[in-house]
Amino acid sequence: MKTATRLYFGASALALASAACGASAPTPELMTARNVYSQARSSEASQLNPRGLHDAHKALSAAERAHADDAGSPAERHYAYIATRKSELAIAQASEALALKEQQRAEQDYKAGLERRSEQMAQESSQYSQQLTQTQTQLQASGEELKAREQKVAELKAAADRAQAQLRQMEAIREEEGRMIISLSGGVLFETAGAQLSGRAQTQLATVAQALAAYTDRNIVIEGHTDATGSDSTNQDLSQRRADAVRSYLESHGVPSERLRSVGRGESEPIASNENAEGRANNRRVEVIVEPAQQPRTSSASQATPDPSAASTQAEDAAVATPPDARPRTSSRQK
């Protein structure tokens, strides 16, 4: 249809032009009319405004006829003027139609863009919602874990308090210069002259190990002591082995080895007279000393044998500290 319309307008224009050839030269108005009509034909008007283009063609035909009838006449000029305006009108109408189409297309694109954006925002919203739920779940889990840990700490503290209370009940615990000293009777812990822990010792040391768990930042010294029965070297060796036995027990019951040190003091530090059985029984003991808080010991120092010079100094200290009536020894006493 459009092609047919174009052919029709094209043929008509040629016919009009050829008709004009035989006559005089066209007026400037007619020249303009032909020119503008040609522009209209090659514009979007041929597709969007065939009716307007047809009107322009009719007007141009009238101008061409007037020119053929009487070249240069006022009628030719008049109809050419009208034809020019009709062609311009056809172009303007087509431009308006094109603008309306563009508006329509832009509105559709805008609507599609809005829909895409809406979908995108819904998707983002869903993602944020999921992340929020995840975070809330994690927070809840962290809160529960924190509660569980707090409860565990409280339980441990309560257990340590109970153990300490038990020790105090045994009247075997005292404090000196920031150190806590737990004194355990050798007669209860060991068989006579031996370094093997007795059954009762296990029960007593279990309580001690439980109490020591509360002092995770303290170093612990285990000192073995004997009475004055037997030779110094025998007593020194026996006290060391007994201190080592207690140390091993504590290690195996959760007290960190790097905080433990065992020392044999032999008979050098009596706390009572070795002249009677009761005094010697008090001197046969193992002391667990919880030192004031400091840096942990290295493993190489954990089992260090006491420095002989230090031992002699300690012996001297003990000699000074021990009353004269507590120093005499008897050869036939039990250890």
């Binding site: 303007a92 308006e96 603008a99 309306l100 508006q103 805008y110």
Partner: peptide, 16 residues
């Protein structure tokens, strides 16, 4: 009228 509609079309594309 054409100018008006062309201006509307320009605004519609600007919105996009």
């Amino acid at each position: 009228k054409t100018e008006q509609e062309q201006e509307k079309a320009r605004q519609a594309w600007q919105k996009i």
